[in-house]
Amino acid sequence: MSETTTVPVTPHGPAHTPAHAKGRHRFYDAIARHRALVTIGFLFVFPWLMPYEALAINILIFGLYALGFNLLFGYTGLLSFGHAAFLGSGAYGAGVAIVSFGVPFLPAILIGVLLATVIAAIMGFLAIRTRGIYFAMVTLALSQCVYYAFYQAVDLTGGENGLRGVNIATLTLFGWELNFLDPMTKYYVIFAFVAVAVWLFSRLLASPFGAALEAIRENENRARACGYDVAATKLAAFVLSGAFCGLAGALRAVHLSIVPIETLHYLTSGQVVMMSLLGGMGTFFGPFVGAAMFLLFEDMLTLLTVHWQLYLGAIFIIFVLFFPRGIWGTLLQWVRRP
């Protein structure tokens, strides 16, 4: 069963796999079965592998953003160009709750997620019956509407200046007093949310609903003939995807202590597409790899040149041309070779 819950990597039929490869496959199958745990373990030690903690936190948050996006893109086969709307509304939801209403940390995060979920439900309802390039365009157009709505609500959102003052200095979680200004503490607070999200995500993929998404990605027409309400299933995936991205946005607001209006910009929608393709669409760990590569390249290139976007674009194109499965997808294919 496990091979069907992961990406369709190379088939490793039992009949023609050499004996020495079998042990190797068993080993990787075992890892694949515990992929949520392995991912969480990796993210736990991750800040020690990074040059500075803020970068680690950024990667963690964008990894979650790409993870949520991947539910739709990699696992359901729908390319949305409007996911900035969920990252942004999650960020503004949490940010405005804290700045304007003095809501405490945990409920504020929850408000961010709920706002993103509601916006995803509305956008999804309007977009889900279109396909392919039309779906991408409709989600893009709707996310632009969300952008302008937040842009216009200057009193709450700060308009083009962004929302400032999302300051969390200390946190009391379950009786613990935590100094949120300490970067390591901040990393592990955000990590706790991401870890729960990763675990929920893996449950979701392994569930019957996850199987229905795979079936729709594989062959929508067949899935419908089997008795799946394809539109409703896609809508559910869209909303769930929006919720994960909204959580990423809410965490980003408290991490940066501001919400730049660019969070809602379509470039932010484009970034998550690039991260997914870099990492490997439809792979569990790929979104984190993609987010890490994207942000690490960006971090290095901005130090070296003002034309960093040009070089980042070139790197992206090289990867997409030569590694169409993305970095993680290519690696998976390699370890699963017969």
Partner: peptide, 17 residues
């Protein structure tokens, strides 16, 4: 997955195996 379509389409929780 075809059998599943008759029983649990929106079960997000239980592992399918």
């Amino acid at each position: 997955v075809a059998v599943q379509a008759m029983h649990s389409r929106f079960d997000l929780w239980r592992p399918r195996e």
